[in-house]
Every structure is written in C-alpha cells, then in structure tokens.
Design a protein around this nucleic acid. Structure first.
Lengths: 115, 115
DNA sequence: GGCATATTCAACCAATCGGTTGACAGCGGG
DNA sequence: CCCGCTGTCAACCGATTGGTTGAATATGCC
C-alpha cells in the first residue's frame, strides 16, 4: 500500500510514550541505542525499532561514530505538526468569531430582557 | 492494561489521515456522522468508529439533536500537543545555544586559518 | 586475524487497528 | 402506532504494532 505521508508518520511516532520519552532525552544530548535503552526494561532491539520509527518520521538522524550510531534529534520536523495544528486552530477560531458576530447582530427587536 | 494517557490518544488519533481530514472539516462546522461519512468511500460505521476515537482523545464532543448527534471540535485539546512540542523544541534550542557558546570559546590559540 | 562491543536482521507472537457486514436502538413525522 | 432515518453494537478479518529471542553484521583494538 501507499506509504504513509510524513505528517501521519510523525504523529504516530509520537503517539508512543516510550518514543516521546526518547525524543525528550534527545533534546538534551545525542545518544546511542544502548544509552537510550538503559532507562527502559525492554530489549535493545526494541529500542532500535523505536529509533527506526523516529528516523522514518524524520524526527531523528543518525551518524556513524566507530561502532556507535548516535541518534540526533531533528527539531525542524516539529514545524510540520505545529503548522497543521495552528492552521486548523485558526480556522476554528475564525468560525467562532463569525458565529459570535452573527449572534450579536440577531437581537431581533425584543432585546431588553436578558433573564 | 493501563489506558493510554490523553497525549498519546491525541497523537494517535491524528496519525490517521481520515481522522485528520474529519477534524479539518469540523473546524468549518459541526457535523453528523452521515455528513462526515459522505466524502469518504467507507461505511458509516467506520466513520462512527473514527469519531469515537476522536471523542476519546477529547478532540470532539457530541450533543443530541433529535435523531442526529452532531460532533463539535474541542480545539483546546490542541494545546496539549503544542505545549509538549514547544517544551522540547525550546529545550533543544537551548542546548544548541550552549553548544555554540562552547564552540565560540574553544578557538584555542591557533585561531587564524578558517580554510 | 581474532575478539569484543554495538547494532541490526529475521522469525515469531499477542494485541490493536481500520475496515467490513448484519442486527438492533432512539426518535420524529405521518 | 409504525415507518424511516440516524447512529451504534457485535462479530469477524487481514494488516500493523510493539515486543521477544537468536543469529548476523560492522567496527575498533590487540
């Protein structure tokens, strides 16, 4: 099937608490698979898989450094989400504004009694 | 198992393109299941399920209106995501700033040749 | 070359996901 | 009261997910 678009991959990458936690750690410093695995009680292989998911979402890049392959957070990808989110937040807010204006124009004659 | 936390539910709700599209539509107007189903070539039941996912993520609320149960977008939940995102974006940026400062302090003696 | 460390590949498993179809419930209009 | 419309519940299905273990690969060190 068609591979998921990047926005979907980013959202679903961050839907997992372990991956979110890994991202949080990577804001402090680049880290290797083994370092990232240490805090969790899952196998190194599982963490390696998580890292691949983050990589395919574009959230993480990796370099080689002797035997190690440190992961580096690519923060710019956050913009993909915030752009989407802000776009629709704005759209919703404009709608509310229009609704309010409509209601304000309505007070059809019998405006007096609020009660 | 422990039910997923809200942040996870929100991210994973938005990981699906159909659900994202539904959210986009709901920024324009509240809509019923049947209205929401119309643009897609999936069953009404499938859309009903999507709606339930959005509801459990807190992104959508529903009211009763005769036979209809219009869905309404709860935009505030977006803040949950932007708060998380901005927190770690900021953290990452501060780290880069510190790294830059470190590099700027380093030019140990032999500063001359850039090439 | 040969060992140790770091990471990934492969096969497997149970649980969840997104979809289907079919039956049922809620409610309003003749 | 019953018809019809709207929506949900239930059971099922194939694909994906997050995890496992065991074997393979990559790289530096002696």
């Amino acid at each position: 099937m068609a591979p998921a678009d990047q926005l979907s991959r980013v959202f679903s990458a961050l839907a997992d608490p372990t991956r979110r936690h890994m991202v949080a750690r990577l804001t402090m410093a680049d880290a290797t698979v083994n370092e990232l695995a240490e805090p969790y009680d899952v196998s190194v292989q599982a963490v390696s898989k998580h890292l691949r998911v983050l990589e395919q979402a574009g959230l993480v890049s990796r370099r080689r450094e002797a035997q190690r392959r440190p992961a580096h957070l690519e923060v710019e990808v956050f913009d993909l989400m915030t752009t989407w989110i802000e776009r629709y937040r704005r759209q919703a807010e404009e709608r509310y504004k229009r609704l309010d204006a409509l209601l304000a124009d309505l007070p059809d004659g019998t405006e007096g009694e609020v009660k």
